[in-house]
Design a binder for these strands. Structure first.
Length: 209
DNA sequence: TGGACGATTGACT
DNA sequence: GTCAATCGTCCAA
């Protein structure tokens, strides 16, 4: 697995940049709200602001890492600040920011984001516009141009993948906590977080109205 | 090694 | 509201 720290080209100590994600996954998931994701995949620069996340870790029956490390979920055990991409329903690519220490299988699913830059590229990839660009995990993955080749990469950004830019932590009053979406286990765990009032928070079947 | 199922989406009734 | 698409992963046998 490629790791920027291996090549010795890290400008700072490994992990320092994403130290704010080396925390209990619920806290890390909250801290990701408001942060920005930059994609330069295919030479097309796209930038979005994260507005919805869900927390998953090894203690959680709904998590891919609940039954331990496998070939698919190995990236979740990397240090905080790496990317874990999985294929959903054979069709969609969903992006997770890995949190916590190396060897710990935890991360936050990025469920939705607001477009900030490169909206024309997202429209071309999605075949749709408006909130439909990025208001769901599969939609966001498609808008960013993400696929399985990005899993295990570092979010420091190397000009060809994804970069995570930290932003100031949102005040509690702007964060809504709820139950996660689309899972069949631990359905009542309050591990979904989204920005109050954002028009890009995901819509899904069975959503409260 | 077979088979059920999924951290979803979009089209259709 | 209902259901198909689509395929890799993982568990049971």
């Amino acid at each position: 697995m490629a790791n920027a720290a291996d090549s010795g080209d890290m400008p700072t100590a490994p992990g320092a940049e994403f130290g704010f994600l080396d925390a209990p996954v619920e806290q890390a998931a909250r801290r990701l709200l408001g942060c920005e994701l930059v994609s330069e995949i295919g030479g097309e620069r796209v930038r979005v602001r994260i507005v919805e996340t869900e927390a998953y870790d090894e203690t959680d029956p709904a998590s891919h890492t609940f039954r331990g490390r496998t070939a698919r979920n190995a990236a979740m055990f990397l240090p905080a600040g790496h990317l874990y991409v999985y294929r959903s329903h054979g069709i969609h690519f969903c992006c997770n920011v890995v949190t916590g220490r190396a060897g710990v299988g935890s991360g936050a699913l990025i469920r939705a984001a607001e477009p900030l830059e490169g909206e024309e590229f997202m429209r071309a990839r999605r075949g749709r516009g408006g909130a439909e660009l990025t208001n769901g995990p599969g939609k966001l993955g498609q808008a960013l141009g993400a696929d399985l080749s990005l899993t295990g990469t570092s979010l420091t950004g190397d000009g060809s993948g994804l970069r995570l830019d930290r932003r100031a932590e949102l005040p509690d009053a702007e964060i809504v906590t709820g139950v996660r979406v689309g899972i069949s286990k631990a359905v009542d765990a309050p591990r979904r977080f989204y920005v109050r009032g954002s028009a890009f928070v995901s819509r899904h079947h069975g959503a409260p109205r």
